[in-house]
Amino acid sequence: METGTAPIRPADRTAALALGDDALVLAQRLGEWAGHGPVLEEEVALANIALDLLGQARHLLSLVGNEDELAYLREEREFRNCQLVEQPNGDFAHTIARQLYFSTYQELLHNRLARTGTPFAPLSAKAVKEIAYHRDHAEHWTLRLGDGTPESRERMQRATDALWRYTGELFEPVGELPVDWTELNDSWLASVTSVLERATLTVPEGPRRGAWTAGAGREGLHTEPFGRMLAEMQHLHRSHPGASW
């Protein structure tokens, strides 16, 4: 897993980086929950999800090159993850909203990729089972927070609204993946809308992307918290150039 040597097409490389960075960055964020969970059972659940994502990330990055060089030695602008996954954990509602948006997207995407002839098909077929559970977990919590107490509903609504503007980017074409992105977006919207409605939440009405035309995560343009996250993630590895761990 540590050395990926098989040459892959540049377009697939782009896609592997995008999908691999998504998984890596979200795993890193979820890893921050250790010791902070609202209840012990939930720490175990979030760690399971993080471990699945980390496994996916390692697989995808290894298609491109050395997983550690890619994770630890690239600069911020070289990361291709969407901005949604780099958003800070916030309260538990923010984490759940981020999980709902992302795992719904990821499940739909890998479901489709599993049926393609791309180098991602085998990974996608395996990942989709893991992700189905992540989505299920996010849905169950969305229902409980949305339809729980007045406080939890308010927090969940706030989180749902706050992350909404990072969801448009998910449906920008990635590399040359043979996916109908418009259809993917429609399916995503239908699925998320249904969950939010069942959770007695209001589907956000705001724009699904930021107003900044400079670009977004897939082009290497990230949000402020991402730099700090990377600094923390990379500093030890970079302090010992060439060392093995």
Partner: peptide
């Protein structure tokens, strides 16, 4: 969050999860 390789990160996450 600072584990110096992805392999070590996975191991540590799994270990900490076991403790919970």
């Amino acid at each position: 969050t600072r584990a110096p390789s992805l392999r070590r990160k996975a191991i540590l996450m799994a270990k900490v999860q076991d403790e919970a």
